[in-house]
């Protein structure tokens, strides 16, 4: 049984700062990491592998050559091999062109796949579109927002616990299928240092535009229906009031007025 896990390299956004003068992101010192939701998807693949024999996990990523590092990371965490889909022609791809390229790369590199696992979204773009688009292109049943997954003994169906607004639903799909994953109750794995070292010995296949049967005009920027025109931080919210250098009575009066204007007190 083969589980393809789509992974993406993203900037580690938790510590990203904005230059107050230029309003642009300060990129110095910002590392690239495996998108956390992709890590959860991989985690569920590893769980299935532990529960069943003969499961092979293939991590696939589309990106520049340095995106190989997320394949290494995925292999440290339990993937058996990696596929790096890289070509200058893929540059500037929006979600649709990315999904089209990844879907074709999966067909090319792992034609006998049984499952495709995807993070529900990437923490940089936050679109949550690529997973469902891949499912559409590959003609697969899809379950989104999964937080638990198990394969039945016949290995013909997957049962997924799905997050919905008011709780959970349990949904089954016939394989092959695609599942996108949320965080759920996953406690992130920590590979052993032996895993880290051995991951460097695992195979990584390269896939380029020439390997895929997609016309050039459907790739990258050319094949994109949308374009990012501008990136800017959200306007800073004025959420706090600092009352300083005044006596306690004046401070209380100011805070009371502040709360009253916002109808916290009458």
């Amino acid at each position: 049984m083969k589980i393809v896990v789509c992974v993406k390299q993203v900037p580690e956004v938790t510590n990203v700062q904005v230059n107050p003068v230029t309003g642009t992101l300060i990129r110095e010192g910002v590392q690239s990491i495996l998108n956390p939701f992709c890590e959860y998807a991989l985690d569920h693949a590893v769980r299935i592998k532990k529960a069943h024999n003969d499961v092979q996990i293939i991590a696939i990523t589309m990106g520049p050559p340095q995106a190989k590092s997320v394949l290494l990371r995925s292999m440290e965490l339990g993937a058996d091999e990696g596929v790096l889909v890289t070509d200058r022609k893929f540059a500037g791809a929006d979600t649709w062109a990315t999904a089209l390229t990844l879907a074709e790369a999966i067909r090319f590199a792992v034609p006998d796949f049984n499952l495709v696992f995807v993070g529900k979204q990437a923490i940089d773009g936050d679109t949550a579109q690529v997973g469902p688009e891949i499912a559409e292109i590959l003609g697969l049943p899809q379950i989104t927002y999964g937080i638990q997954a198990e394969i039945n003994d016949s290995r013909r169906q997957i049962r997924v616990k799905q997050e919905v607004e008011r709780g959970y639903e349990v949904i089954e799909a016939t394989l092959p299928a695609l599942v996108t994953f949320s965080k759920g109750e996953v406690v992130r794995r920590a590979p052993s240092f032996a895993d880290v070292l051995r991951a460097r010995q695992k195979p990584v296949r390269m896939v380029s535009a020439n390997d895929l049967s997609i016309p050039e005009e459907k790739l990258g920027l050319q094949g994109s229906f949308t374009q990012v025109v501008k990136v800017f931080p959200p306007p800073a919210k004025k959420s706090s009031l600092l009352v300083d250098n005044v006596d306690a009575v004046e401070a209380a009066r100011t805070i009371y007025q502040f709360l009253k204007e916002r109808r916290f007190v009458s």
């Binding site: 990491i33 920590a190 240092f193 032996a194």
Partner: peptide, 28 residues
């Protein structure tokens, strides 16, 4: 080509295994 055989051997000489560890290198 990560070569940490000296570390592996040192740990093994003390009767432990590098497999019984947690490792991480990303800043998070």
């Amino acid at each position: 080509n990560l070569d940490y055989h000296i570390l592996e051997e040192t740990i093994a000489r003390c009767g432990a295994r590098l497999e019984d560890s947690w490792a991480g290198y990303e800043s998070r």
